[in-house]
Amino acid sequence: MSMLVSLIAVFGLVAVSYMMELVGLHTVLGIIIPYTAVLVFLGGFTYRIIDWARSPVPFKIPTTCGQQESLSWIKHNKLESPSTTGQVMARMFLEVFFFRSLFRNTKTDATEGPRLLYTSDKFLWLGGIVFHWTFLVIVLRHFRLFVEPVPGFVHLLESVDGFIQLTLPTFYMTDMVIVLVVTYLFIRRVVIPQVKYISLAADFFPLLLILAIALTGILMRYILKVNIVGVKELVHGLFALSPVIPDNLGSTAYIFYIHLFLVSSLLVYFPFSKLMHMGGVFMSPTRNLPNDSRKHRHINPWNDPNIKPHSYEAYEDDFRKVMKSVGLPLEKDVDGEEEGEK
């Protein structure tokens, strides 16, 4: 059900943009929507981060995955139980760039046991890391279209990515990889029962949307061959804040507009979805705090100073007699047989 909804939604987006292109709403598709999308993305992303940041972190609660810093002769695990800001940054670096926690999953399959089907865990990490890195490379590669002159790192990426020269224009491995890996991540959600059970439309939709973006991109580049000069002109215009709609995109311009519309959709959808994990991962209190809570006091802004314990005095009042009977020292020794006061 949720899968079907997502599929329909993505097809809907494609159809809408195709129709808009047919009726010639090029300014809307090529200028208004992309600008709106970028604004929504930037505004939404910032808003979400600020919104999270507005909620304080009342307690210092890192999940410790290794030996704490304690006695000098006990080896402190600086990465898994960091106690300084530098160590926390190292932990976060591995977390963000190499998905260290997810990688832990691979360990568990090492020991003996009856041989059975497959080990999904390893693939989840691999799928995740390949997907994210590929996505990043593809985004960076697009900088060729964004700015002039083309930044140096783009050339480097292109030459590595286009190492296998299969097609003309140069075939980029990432184009194939992203289709494969997104397909894998999608199939995984459908095939593994416990993952299917927990999956929502919000899980299928972004995968399908990204798949659609990748496919339209591939179509545009290798098969329908939109005129790249025109594309560059349009995108440069957008980035230079002097937008133009070029008329030399060729007969297959529609695929470019669909691609651009889908990317815009992703940008708009991003801040309101789970995709915000991109920003959220940096803010997770179980990961981004040092394990030094006994060394440095953490401040809770809403700590309520009026919460007091049941006082010792009240306690002694309650139990003075029996305390005396076992010889416990008293703050206020009342002589009378009965307790003198309340």
């Binding site: 979400r48 919104d51 999270w52 940041a53 909620s55 304080p56 972190v57 609660i61 926690s101 997810l102 999953n105 865990d121 989840l124 995740g128 593994i192 416990q194 993952v195 927990i198 999956s199 929502l200 899980d203 789970k274 915000m276 994990h277 959220g280 991962v281 803010m283 997770s284 209190p285 179980t286």
Partner: peptide, 15 residues
């Protein structure tokens, strides 16, 4: 913040 963030960012990867 933990609560708010954890309401928002889970991608249900199943790990």
């Amino acid at each position: 913040r933990s609560f708010k963030l954890y309401m928002d960012i889970c991608v249900r990867c199943g790990a």
